[in-house]
């Protein structure tokens, strides 16, 4: 039941975009078309799950060396970035069709707050392996749900005729995201 609580909170209750304000830069940049939003979401799911597993092991190593609080940030970001580079190389060489659809977004995910925040979270909350898997899967699926919904709304916003000039582009997108955040606030306050 506790796993369901973790999954529900990460997916809907304290959604990583709408409640915790992380990963906003791609949220505003990539969500102009729904195909790119889906691609971004899928790439993020893959990267977050795999790098959370890597960071789980790395954290055990750093605790062993008693240098966790000093080296945590530097080693995590270096390993995450090198993992993303390795993944891109692997896709380029062996699965070119997958690279065609998802590979454009991989460099964007290197400097994405979500990946680093998931790794820092699983350290500070001291999750075990199964909880790490569930948490990273539900955070990234929650991100993908929000960005895909938002891209559909955004195509309608961009095509509207009567938008005042000052609100065009990202200003009205932010206000719409605020309305979405209000809707998602309905999911907070559950405890399992």
């Amino acid at each position: 039941m506790e796993l369901f609580g973790i999954a529900f909170a990460a997916l809907l209750g304290s959604n990583i975009i709408l409640s915790r304000f992380l990963g906003i830069c791609p949220f505003l940049g990539v969500s102009k078309k729904s195909s790119s939003a889906i691609g971004m979401g899928l790439a993020l799911i893959a990267v977050v799950i795999l790098s959370s597993l890597i960071c789980y092991g790395l954290d055990k190593l750093l605790v062993l060396l008693e240098m966790q609080s000093y080296l945590e940030l530097v080693v995590f970001i270096l390993v995450i970035a090198s993992f993303v580079q390795l993944l891109e190389f692997f896709l380029k060489k062996y699965i070119p069709s997958l690279y065609k659809s998802l590979g454009v977004y991989l460099p964007l995910i290197t400097t994405n707050c979500v990946v680093l925040q998931v790794c820092l979270d699983l350290v500070s909350r001291e999750y075990n392996l199964l909880q790490t898997l569930v948490y990273s899967l539900s955070v990234s699926v929650g991100y993908m749900i929000v960005i895909v919904i938002f891209s559909h709304i955004r195509t309608r916003l961009d095509n509207s005729q009567n938008m005042p000039k000052a609100f065009k582009g990202n200003a009205i997108a932010l206000i719409t995201a605020g309305l979405m955040a209000m809707a998602f606030m309905a999911f907070s306050g559950f405890s399992f």
Partner: peptide
């Protein structure tokens, strides 16, 4: 003061700024 207010407040400030710049 709540979560959604952050988005709405930032959106309004961005709109105000681009209005002034225009």
């Amino acid at each position: 003061a709540s979560n959604s207010g952050a988005f709405i407040a930032l959106g309004l400030v961005v709109a105000l700024y681009s209005f002034v710049m225009n």
